[in-house]
């Protein structure tokens, strides 16, 4: 319940849109229409992975903005996967049952902007392409810049080209095409906003270029979604529930809490929304804060931790749960 409203769904279609990206089409099992959503929204999929429950967040595609009969997501097989994306690629086929959360948007378009510059790298195209679809439908001015390693890995490139024509600019690094943010940012009229989603290094690069060009912070938007990484195992005690357990190497703190049967709060499972902030009662070791929510000061004080992406390097963590 802590993740909010859940919709039971079934996989009704899958498609390999690149060697590493799989598109899933998910339809409600109970006949209830799925709600419409805004571009940039994600959903948390809950999948029975046999020995464990997999809960991963994925951006909702622009193809199903109106909701209704189905939602679509695109899942990249992650090399550092703790098993979630690999399980989806290897085992989740047509007919499989799972559930998804109501859409949550932490990467929304600023509707007061007069013009929108969308920049995507790799699988970061999923929320960015949804933004392009929404802006297109609203007849608002935008340009879409999409960088990829090679044409085979560029999911959706052909589809986007057909749909957005001259508004789309592709950069294929295999063909020595480089996305030059400085050129894109020059001569943009007042009221232009910039959105970027892609590898962390790309986001940092784009943001730095924009700041160097004098763009104000409020005009800059990035999807700071983190795939939680594993780490060394450590002991976990939940003081209020009186439960002791272990957070495994390939498990997040939040997953260990859920596996212990405790209903802990969460929304994005990506270190962005702040919903899973939990009070730390004691930490025998060093807190590894990986979220984008707490300030540096809060992180160093260590009074709270975001259970979805952060963990402990040390012996035991005691939480107020």
């Amino acid at each position: 319940m802590s993740g909010g409203v859940q919709f039971p769904v079934r996989v009704i279609e899958t498609e390999a849109i690149s060697p590493t990206v799989k598109r899933l089409r998910l339809a409600p099992r109970d006949g209830q229409a799925l709600p419409a959503y805004s571009a940039g929204s994600h959903t948390v999929l809950t999948i029975d992975g046999g020995s464990r429950l997999i809960r991963n967040a994925y951006s909702l595609l622009g193809s199903t903005l109106a909701g209704g009969a189905a939602y679509e997501v695109a899942v990249q097989r992650s090399p550092q996967s703790r098993g979630g994306s690999a399980f989806i690629h290897d085992h989740l086929t047509v007919g499989a049952d799972l559930s998804l959360s109501a859409p949550i948007n932490l990467f929304a378009l600023n509707r007061t902007a007069r013009r929108h510059i969308l920049v995507a790298g790799g699988i970061g195209i999923t929320p960015i392409a949804a933004m392009a679809a929404e802006l297109d439908a609203l007849a608002l001015p935008f340009e879409l810049h999409y960088a990829m390693r090679d044409t085979a890995s560029g999911a959706f490139a052909a589809e986007l080209a057909a749909r957005h024509g001259d508004n789309l600019h592709l950069y294929v690094s295999e063909r020595q095409e480089r996305l030059s943010v400085r050129d894109i940012l020059a001569r943009q009229p007042l009221g232009t906003h910039l959105y970027v989603c892609g590898p962390e290094r790309m986001i940092e690069g784009v943001m730095t270029d924009a700041r160097m060009a004098g763009w104000p912070e409020s005009a800059l938007h990035a999807e700071r979604f983190l795939a939680p990484e594993g780490g060394e195992p450590f002991a976990l005690r939940l003081a209020r529930s009186g439960i002791s357990t272990v957070v495994g190497e390939h498990e997040t703190l939040l997953e260990a809490i859920e596996a212990a049967g405790v209903d802990a709060p969460y929304l994005c499972r990506g270190g962005a929304c702040g919903q899973c902030e939990t009070r730390v009662l004691a930490a025998d070791g060093h807190l590894l804060h990986a979220d984008h929510y707490l300030t540096d000061g809060q992180k160093s004080r260590g009074e709270t931790i975001m259970t979805c992406v952060s963990r402990l390097r040390g012996r035991e963590l005691v939480l107020d749960l």
């Binding site: 909010g4 409203v5 709600p35 109501a102 859409p103 949550i104 929304l267 702040g274 919903q275």
Partner: peptide
Amino acid sequence: LKFLLNLQQGR
């Protein structure tokens, strides 16, 4: 405000 920024659809 913090609470409302995370207000969810259907809730």
